[in-house]
């Protein structure tokens, strides 16, 4: 009898895990320092009141992907969408610990950061192939979008047929040129925001509902 109940419990747990539809996992990708963590924190704060991770002007601040599960975004028309937000380390093809030393970080700590960053980027690339259902691709609108990393990453995302939103961030800065990003990626929706100031977030949420819903 006891065994029967236990087996039944285990079976139902197995079935519910199996049948439950996984929430869409949205990865925030982009080069180092684009403002991915700033945006992730804002999204998480806007809809749950928490934060996700620390922000810094030093590149590779995020060296391990962080995930916040079950964020429900909605609009006034009653559309809503529940998703997981994954803040990823800035993608690059090279990392030298000396970069950190130049920011005044001790050698030993710099080496540790560089190692963590390489592992984090490798993991983020792996996830992009296996585990991500949609992408917010973030760019600093004050910089030239035509870099090899950006072109490669957008190509990888397209080849996986993932829904993608491109965010032109930092439009609060005078040098910001979101039009340049729109011209670079005419095949995708581009939303110009300031993750720091919170400018134009409503438009971003509208697009998220449309593209990831």
């Amino acid at each position: 009898m006891n065994l029967f109940i236990r087996t039944k419990k285990r079976l139902s747990r197995f079935l519910s895990a199996f049948l439950k539809k996984r929430q869409s996992r949205i990865g925030i990708y982009g080069p180092p320092n684009a403002g991915k963590t700033t945006l992730s924190n804002r999204i998480v704060r806007d809809w749950t009141g928490d934060a996700l991770g620390p922000v810094s002007e030093i590149p590779h601040e995020t060296r391990r992907a962080r995930r916040k599960e079950g964020i429900t975004i909605s609009n006034q028309n009653g559309n809503s969408l529940t998703l997981d937000i994954v803040d990823t380390p800035g993608v690059t093809t090279k990392i030298d610990y000396q970069e950190f030393v130049e920011y005044g970080i001790e050698k030993e700590e710099a080496i540790k950061r560089a190692r963590e960053a390489t592992e984090g980027v490798a993991e983020a690339m792996h996830w992009l192939r296996e585990d991500i259902d949609g992408v917010i691709y973030m760019l600093d609108a004050t910089l030239d979008p035509f870099t090899q990393v950006n072109i490669m990453l957008v190509g990888i995302i397209e080849s996986r047929d993932l829904p993608v939103l491109i965010v032109a961030n930092k439009i609060d800065l005078p040098d910001a040129a979101p039009q340049r990003i729109m011209k670079a990626f005419p095949q995708h929706p581009v939303i110009a925001i300031s993750g720091l100031e919170g400018d134009n977030m409503e438009e971003l949420y509208e697009h998220m509902l449309k593209v990831f819903g």
Binding site: T93, I95, I111, M152, G155, I156
Partner: peptide, 18 residues
């Protein structure tokens, strides 16, 4: 190919050393 580019980045990261 995009798949190869993605693997190249991942593998490169694993080879980096101080």
């Amino acid at each position: 190919s995009p798949e190869e580019q993605s693997r190249l980045i991942e593998m490169t990261m694993m080879e980096i050393s101080p």
